[in-house]
Design a protein around this nucleic acid. Structure first.
Lengths: 356, 356
DNA sequence: CTGTTAGCGCTTTCAG
DNA sequence: CTGAAAGCGCTAACAG
């Protein structure tokens, strides 16, 4: 029903509806924009009928063109493969709907070219604002956006030379919490494993926090070191092995601390490869990011408030779109320590998974 | 550089560029559309300068409005949390770029309301086509799309009462392959675990294939049963336990076969909970979908050709957008058996992970 | 309360 | 080779 008319392929336009309802376009427009009470009940009914009959849907493009705003916001994700991003995304989506925005999701797949290209595309579609989980590199296209008056809010990572709102994890506190946990569990040698961090601010901050925290502990008690792991290059894994072996020879209790989920997975796979299925009995591993397999592997993590990060990002963006003029803000949300068996220094017994 | 002029907030329009270049809008338009050779070199240079100076970007909305096509295609994903979807997405994105489409990614988060809402939104933005990984339920909005002349191609799942192109895994063959593998490994009791499958065609097909394959083997050799697992309700897990216990009491070699990754994870978590960290020594588990933790857990899987699925979907869509009129097509791509330690019937030794 | 009239930024005849 | 003008679908004054 409601569409027994010629399936004309071409969608009905506001003009068609006006004609069908025997009125002018203005009234239709008024109806569409909820200017209720300004229309006689009689007219409103005729309009409703016409709309139903023609299965009419207003064309957002045309609307946007006229109004100067199209309710589109861009969400540029560096890597959808990383569950972190998907979770943030969910917060973003929910908040967008609440505010009446349509999120345009773009996936840079860790490619700088793609990031740039999408940024341009978004410009071209005249999005009203952009949330960017950037690759971190200085990017003219990004600057060009803000200069063009399009609000930008950064997620997880800052971008060199760009001052805007940014929301992410309180990395310093998260790392501190993790290190304190490891120390309290009796580990006395900590290895922080992180991807090349020069470009990516969150990694940089985490690494710095790791060293600071260790330093504050007094070098005599606990020793720590950072290992830079290139996911595409297995060589650095050898260094981890060397450190682990050395520590164990000296009877030191060593723990690996992965800076994020991809690193944790890479390291875990390697350890399993090297030590066999029982690898977790040989070496302790924890990480930032509570990925879906963390529970299965019984790995201690710091869970990020991903959903909230996404929501908050949209809130910031919304305020800016509405015209707020204020200095760049930084919103750092606290992580949550999720303790599991991997960081109890005693060999986990089969029935005891997750200690305190 | 290239933007030392008044940062006017308002982006430059084609009119601005025309004025700046001292010419008419038509020429600018021609330049933008690559109607090269129709412009004198001299004019072209002036245009290029003007564009650069004003940092001009053509407004796609306006273009679309006039042209009647905006190069937008919708991609509706049922659940981004499922790595399957993300992988398909990557194929879709790549293919879209190749064809010059801008994919609008929408995430239904397994909510029927959201699915419907997004479908309407996409209509409203006049996307030229839609790729749908639907929730599977009969959906008026979807039908309304196709009737409105918007091409739709389905991914992974068919939708009741909707005849369109669809691309996905060759489920029947995939299940057959898996069952044969399990049997050849010496398992003689198979438990197929699947979410409620009435609504979702791919699950239905997998379940049917499971029963058929078992049946074809001759009931005397191997016995099989299907267990329906509701991810939000733990009760059904008890049935799995009962079956496993019974089989082991009778000295039968039982294997669990999860219909997809979410099920596999749920089951794995439960088994670990019940049997401790060594659960894999107690019960064999394999699944369709090769998720990132499968390697870590040493779990045998059937890997889907996700990327190709995405690509193929866009190809189909493209042909339809270009006006091809043909009967609905179905493209079933083969899966790949990835054998790992979980399905070798002997207890996996620490140094031997994954046999043949 | 309702309709007429101008555009939004762009493409596309149709004449120079 | 180049430009003027009409119009895509819609909204927003501005009259009635």
């Amino acid at each position: 029903m409601a569409r027994d008319n010629f399936s004309n392929d071409r969608r009905a336009t506001i003009t068609d509806v006006a004609r069908e309802a025997g009125t002018g376009k203005t009234s239709i427009s008024r109806y569409l924009n909820g200017e209720t009470g300004v229309l006689s009940t009689e007219l409103r009914e005729r309009i409703e009928e016409a709309i139903a009959k023609l299965d009419y849907r207003p064309n957002q493009m045309a609307r946007g063109l006229k109004r100067g705003r199209n309710r589109l916001v861009g969400m540029l994700v560096a890597d959808l493969t990383n569950p972190y991003s998907v979770e943030v995304l969910q917060g973003v989506e929910a908040a967008c709907h609440a505010y009446g925005y349509m999120p345009l999701i773009c996936h840079a797949a860790n490619e700088l070219d793609l990031e740039r290209r999408y940024l341009q595309l978004l410009t071209t579609y005249r999005v009203e604002g952009v949330i960017v989980n950037a690759l971190g590199v200085k990017e003219d296209t990004l600057e060009s956006l803000t200069r063009g008056g399009v609000p930008v809010v950064l997620v997880d990572r800052a971008v060199e030379g760009l001052v805007t709102d940014m929301v992410g994890l309180d990395n310093t506190e998260a790392v501190r919490m993790a290190v304190r946990h490891l120390v309290s569990q009796g580990f006395d040698e900590l290895l922080f494993v992180v991807q090349p961090y020069a470009q990516v601010s969150s990694r940089r901050v985490r690494e710095a926090a790791f060293r600071d925290t260790i330093g504050a502990l007094g070098v005599s008690t606990v020793s720590g070191a950072t290992i830079v792991l290139d996911l595409d290059n297995d060589e650095t894994l050898a260094e981890i092995d060397a450190r682990v072996d050395a520590a164990q020879r000296q009877n030191r209790r060593i723990a690996l601390f992965a800076a994020n989920a991809p690193v944790a997975l890479r390291v875990a796979l390697h350890l399993k490869d090297r030590h066999g299925v029982d690898w977790q009995r040989r070496v302790a591993l924890m990480s930032i990011d509570d990925s879906e397999w963390a529970e299965l592997a019984g790995m201690t993590t710091v869970r990020q408030p991903t959903y909230t990060i996404g929501e908050r990002a949209v809130e910031f963006l919304h305020e800016r779109i509405e015209g707020a003029v204020l200095a760049a803000r930084e919103c750092l949300l606290p992580g949550e320590l999720v303790v599991r068996a991997s960081t109890s220094i005693t060999v986990p017994s089969p029935t005891n998974h997750g200690g305190t």
